[in-house]
Design a protein around this nucleic acid. Sequence first.
DNA 1: CTGAAAGCGCTTACAG
DNA 2: CTGAAAGCGCTTACAG
Lengths: 339, 339
Amino acid sequence: MENKTVTIKDVAKKAGVSVSTVSRAFNNYSDINPETREQILKIAEELGYKPNIIARSLSSNRNFRLGMLVEDYDLSGMLNPLVFEILMNFKNTATKLGYETVLLSTTSDVQKNEKLSKLFTDKQLDGMFIMGLKMTDEYYRELSQIDKPCVLYDININNPYVGCVGVDNTKGAFLAVEYLIKLGHKKIGFINGHKDAYVSYERLDGYFLAHNRYGLTVDNSLIEYADFTDKGAEEAVERLINRHRDVTAIFCASDIMAIGVVNRLNDLGYSIPDDISIIGFDGIYLSQCISPKITTVKQDTAKIGEAAANLLFNIIQGQRIGRVVIEPELLERESTKSV
Amino acid sequence: MENKTVTIKDVAKKAGVSVSTVSRAFNNYSDINPETREQILKIAEELGYKPNIIARSLSSNRNFRLGMLVEDYDLSGMLNPLVFEILMNFKNTATKLGYETVLLSTTSDVQKNEKLSKLFTDKQLDGMFIMGLKMTDEYYRELSQIDKPCVLYDININNPYVGCVGVDNTKGAFLAVEYLIKLGHKKIGFINGHKDAYVSYERLDGYFLAHNRYGLTVDNSLIEYADFTDKGAEEAVERLINRHRDVTAIFCASDIMAIGVVNRLNDLGYSIPDDISIIGFDGIYLSQCISPKITTVKQDTAKIGEAAANLLFNIIQGQRIGRVVIEPELLERESTKSV
DNA sequence: CTGAAAGCGCTTACAG
DNA sequence: CTGAAAGCGCTTACAG
């Protein structure tokens, strides 16, 4: 019933060599005769041998395990499919690189009791990919002086052990606002995300830059903050509209918020895009399912996940890269029109 | 810099006992003096000792690792946030049970070359939670005779090692259609999911049962199949409408499809729910973000994930439970009205 | 109730 | 280029 698992010993015996040699063959060591190597690999194949990663970890002190840490998954997961997409893409390239991935979650509260470095050793991780971290978090502080390989999504930190990956948020916001300006809009509202989110600063920069570039001045009262939820955005847009009846376009820092904004505006009797143009951010699948299809700035989740895994791998190997920036892409759809 | 990790030896030395005894203390063995036990745990706490799970796996031949296998993640992940929610909830209770979780993905093609049992041993898993499996898959066949603990979501199989968890799909469909009937609808279309999906059969049953219960006969040409995508549903609803101009309500086997249907119907000049009532399935977050808010049948992802982990745990412990069914819940919202 | 010893399946200096 | 041996941090019969 239980078909005994084949070990390195079995391979060694059948190949007529020592286990050390088999180990060498499997670890791509240079100090081994290419022919013996071929021979061993062939026999291993026949026997269906796969190195026991657990034993390897224990003896080599290398774990070949990467953690994927998601903060407040209950929120980010439900609301934002981006997280899941990025995670799966990360996992895929991590697998190709020979690493297994374990899924971990945390919250701002938990971080007060359990240090990140402890999590690292407890879980026997070689590296960690972290999503959803806020600037007010305990881990954000700890990350500035950690000496373990980490990669952060959408938040930056200055530490050679910590890589950062994300879309160029400033440019993305710039593209969105520039697009609106080119459509003739002059009074453009902005529903930004969390005040504590790193990306909110970057996107705010983009909003300003686009105005500057085209000779427009920003009225700060056109800017609202919400919490990346549709509900929050609905309230924010109502505040905005009440202050500025003559807004003709609104840039939302996420598609989810854009959807909330469209709905609330509909309820208030506005027609989109005829009365007000709306542009989102993220490019989630659902942004094109609803009517009108949301014009948005797409984050390429495949590229982000892949880049994160490669970056983490490089850091583990001793390279110090720092930051990988993915190009955002404007997707022109139906929720915007010229005035 | 590298703060040497504390091992069982350190604890043993400091406590003045053997490593065997420390091991006993940590494994809740009964044959140990409660006082020594307390003493050891206290010292371990001071030293910040955590058992090395890798070493434990290697020596005990128990891995405390669970796989989470997702099929065709590119599709299910993008389209359906349910998968991610269930996964995270599964992970959470697995963690409480002392297991770590590794994320795995597969496709129908991959299954032809790599057996499930091989994946099991290669990844050193104690159990596996599988989502998105289709009835035509290679693994579906293999699962009927596997002797390793598995739990499937939304698909049933008769094997003591394999547990099944999911919402009561027949009842869920029944509730949806019953609700429409009670609203006075008599000609009710049905956009079902994949023909190869197990749940499609169950939901079809529910559609029939509701008709039977209320003395209505089913016209089979009211039933369409789509692939769980909004695009597929858009085409399906157009075929349906072309055959039956007088349909007054449509039950869709997923919220994503319901959203597609609403959009296409809007394009065709129908007003929802005034001209046609639409009801979905799943209860994803976005179903309430759009306008009209979609009436739907909710799957409780928290309960499903938790149940799946507990079920898998029980199977690993030697219990044979079989199947856990979660109650679906009808969410009355805006996309339906009485006629 | 406790300890000494073997062993889990690998890797890695050390010799040769 | 290859082998013998020690060791990674635990668990588990076996004695006592």
